[in-house]
Amino acid sequence: MDRPFFLMTDPGCFDVSYRINPWMKPEVWGAEKAAAACAASTALREALEATGAHVETVGAVKGLPDLVFPANAAVVLDGKVLLARFRHPERQGEEPHFRAAFQRLKARGLVDEIVDLPEGLFHEGAGDAIWDADRRHFWCGYGPRSSQGALPAIRRTFGREIIPLELATDRFYHLDTCFCPLAGGKVLYYPPAFTAEARANIRAHVAEADRIEASDEEAAAFCVNAVNLGSRIIMARAPGSLREKLAAAGYALTEVDLAPFILSGGAAYCMTLRLDRRSVSAAQLHAAE
């Protein structure tokens, strides 16, 4: 497929009925929030499709509300799928449903290989392993959800360099909540979410001019949890300060009201899983022929 290809999940069974991160607020959930969630998911899908992307949808499953966050289901690169293993029991029921979804995609030729994580390790997919298309490596978060010991499995599976980044707080429990590589080599991130060593690792790999730091307000609005397609960034509603930063850096925003999903600690990136990423660009493949 020669256009961006994303996996999303039907939000029909989404709710906030338990608390496994500090953002989750079951006490404020209600029927009106469920209706708003369906509208928000549709708006996100339409924003992706407006860029020319193709979106496949996984069916909803009663009792698995966080199935709407397929970024956590797997790491995908070069047609290879490394399945996640969830740390919290509340999410472990998602694993067979996502496995079945990938098996269906494989049967259609849309992915090539499905790989299991070694036993005894936790890793929550692309939420903690973000491919940097400019630098051609993975940024790998660990700590609250994903095991540090899972990082070598990512390197072995995909044969690509990994840059480890330890997360410092349960508030930013996945890397995708606080770190977003952008086309052109810039990185949008929230420094307080990382340990001092992780911040040093970011500085070592990203020039100062390419680092865009999110404020407390911008990070709390889940704007770092964004989908980037070229110069277009699709994200939750952004504070004016972030709009100005990104416009100055040459990016255009599509904002979507994702408030119902932010009540569960997720936004645009969490709600999608990109399936067409390649470790070698089309230009490089052509040059090698």
Results as ranks from 00 to 15, higher is better:
17 S>G: 14
92 Q>T: 06
111 V>A: 05
216 D>F: 09
29 W>T: 03
57 T>P: 00
188 L>Y: 04
161 E>K: 12
282 A>S: 09
194 F>P: 12
17 S>A: 11
6 F>N: 02
70 P>G: 03
30 G>K: 08
58 V>I: 14
150 A>P: 01
165 L>E: 01
19 R>D: 05
186 K>E: 11
74 A>Q: 02
132 D>K: 09
25 K>V: 05
2 D>R: 11
180 C>N: 13
72 N>Y: 00
183 A>W: 07
200 A>R: 12
88 H>C: 09
60 A>D: 05
41 S>Y: 00
8 M>P: 00
182 L>R: 05
172 F>H: 10
73 A>T: 07
181 P>A: 10
263 L>D: 11
12 G>P: 00
130 I>Q: 04
127 G>Q: 01
126 A>H: 00
160 R>K: 12
118 P>S: 11
98 F>I: 05
67 L>W: 08
263 L>W: 11
75 V>I: 14
85 R>Q: 13
218 E>I: 00
165 L>D: 04
117 L>R: 04
55 V>S: 12
47 A>D: 07
2 D>Q: 13
62 K>G: 10
70 P>L: 03
103 Q>A: 13
150 A>W: 03
208 E>G: 03
184 G>F: 04
54 H>Q: 13
235 M>F: 04
203 R>D: 14
122 F>Y: 13
57 T>D: 04
71 A>L: 09
270 C>F: 04
74 A>E: 01
248 A>H: 11
26 P>F: 06
222 F>M: 15
211 R>Y: 04
158 F>Q: 02
90 E>D: 14
104 R>G: 13
217 E>G: 09
247 A>N: 08
134 D>S: 10
259 A>Y: 08
186 K>L: 01
139 W>I: 02
109 G>A: 03
225 N>H: 09
223 C>N: 14
144 P>L: 13
263 L>R: 12
68 V>C: 14
91 R>D: 07
53 A>E: 10
238 A>V: 01
19 R>N: 10
187 V>S: 00
79 G>E: 04
36 A>V: 00
262 I>M: 15
181 P>S: 08
107 A>H: 08
60 A>R: 07
119 E>C: 12
37 A>I: 10
23 W>L: 08
217 E>Q: 12
186 K>G: 06
18 Y>E: 01
83 L>T: 12
277 R>D: 10
41 S>V: 03
86 F>L: 13
136 R>G: 05
26 P>N: 07
46 E>C: 10
49 E>D: 06
237 R>L: 14
158 F>C: 09
18 Y>N: 02
104 R>S: 15
24 M>G: 08
196 A>Y: 03
248 A>Q: 14
160 R>H: 07
115 V>I: 15
19 R>G: 03
212 I>W: 01
73 A>C: 07
193 A>L: 11
148 Q>I: 05
103 Q>N: 07
244 E>S: 10
148 Q>P: 03
43 A>R: 12
211 R>M: 15
280 V>S: 13
127 G>S: 12
169 T>P: 07
226 A>M: 10
141 G>E: 10
181 P>I: 11
